[in-house]
Computed example of a mutant assay.
Amino acid sequence: MNDSHTPVSRWSDLDRPPLDATALRRALVRPGTLWTSVDVVTETGSTNSDLALRAGAGHAEEGAVLVAEEQTAGRGRLDRRWTAPARSGLFFSVLLKPGPDVPVGRYGWLPLLTGVAVATGLARAAGVDTALKWPNDLLVTVAGEERKAGGILAERVGEDAIVVGIGLNVSLRQAELPVPTAGSLALAGAASLDRDILLRAVLRSLEHWYGEWRAAGGDPVLSRIQETYAAGCATLGRTVRAQLPGDGELAGEAVAVDGDGRLVVRTADGERHPVGAGDIVHLRATD
């Protein structure tokens, strides 16, 4: 029993054991595979920022993975902050260098590709259905409602490298959610909350889809990324409002993801508008 004078360590939650960095390296870093290093740190501001600095200084190869047990300044799209209790999720970044075989114009598929990889990896390892909200949100169903359980942020480093960051709520309880619309694998009834298993599954899935896409020269059709993303995208077929850069706005039905990874929105007048950047709000039929 703890007495009132015994400090409660933030690392004392037995439901949230630390990641086993040695076992992760043994399982993932092998000759002939994509992953070249796996580092786990106790705490950092942002794994994306840290890995980008390493890459910029020439201290990280393609396939480097940086995982944090806790992020204090994690970033999402539009400079949103991402925070969660220590060891309650998976917060990690990977360094990718598509190389000369993939045109720079197709790099925009990387966050969508990562979404496919995360969703398929979690379906296999956690038995949970993860839907994709364009362009890079990961959704789970909690009590019949869609909730955001994760997100993806891809950032360019130099001429030929991309750092892709993934944040995923794993064991967050209802009272720990940052906002009521957030979710977690635990709240979605996942069969497994073992973060070692989940991380291995997601990274192996990412290696597979990235390899297919790269072998196809970044072609989203030949690599099957476009059709697989569309099949798992909860945004398609929905009435949406797109909040565009510069305070513009567009409302209509999301009808497709085009060859450049843009969301195609059909407005009431029948016109189709490709949206390459912006915030997408799913609207209810009555909105």
Rank of each mutant, 00 (worst) to 15 (best):
P18V: 11
D258W: 00
N136K: 14
V8F: 13
A201Q: 04
A285V: 05
D3F: 08
L236Q: 08
V65P: 07
G74R: 12
E155A: 06
A201G: 07
G252D: 06
V29C: 04
V142N: 01
L206D: 07
L90S: 11
E43H: 10
V202F: 03
K133Y: 05
V275S: 04
T36D: 02
R284H: 14
R173Q: 14
Q243E: 15
N2H: 15
G144I: 00
V142G: 00
E69A: 13
L153W: 08
E69L: 13
L250D: 08
R173E: 14
T22S: 14
N2T: 13
R224T: 11
P135E: 09
D101I: 08
R266D: 00
A125C: 08
P220H: 01
T130A: 10
R200Q: 13
G183P: 00
G158W: 03
A117K: 02
E69D: 14
L206W: 08
W11N: 12
V40A: 11
G183V: 00
S93F: 09
V104N: 04
A55K: 00
R106Y: 04
E249V: 05
V164G: 06
A64S: 13
L153Y: 05
F92A: 14
G121I: 03
T267M: 06
A182V: 00
W213D: 05
G218I: 04
D219W: 09
D50Y: 10
G151E: 10
T181G: 06
T83E: 15
V240M: 05
A215S: 07
R224I: 03
S93R: 11
T83S: 14
W213C: 02
A60G: 02
A215V: 01
L53S: 12
A191L: 11
G32P: 00
L51I: 03
E155M: 09
T33C: 08
L199I: 05
L193D: 11
L203A: 05
T47M: 12
N2K: 14
W11D: 13
G108F: 04
V221G: 03
A215Y: 07
G105K: 07
L113T: 04
A23V: 08
R204F: 06
R80M: 11
D3I: 02
E207D: 09
I280E: 09
A161K: 01
E70A: 15
D3S: 09
R147G: 02
V118N: 07
R87F: 15
E43T: 14
G144K: 00
R262K: 08
L236H: 07
A126C: 04
R106K: 07
A84H: 10
G252Y: 02
S205E: 07
G45Q: 13
P111Q: 06
R77N: 15
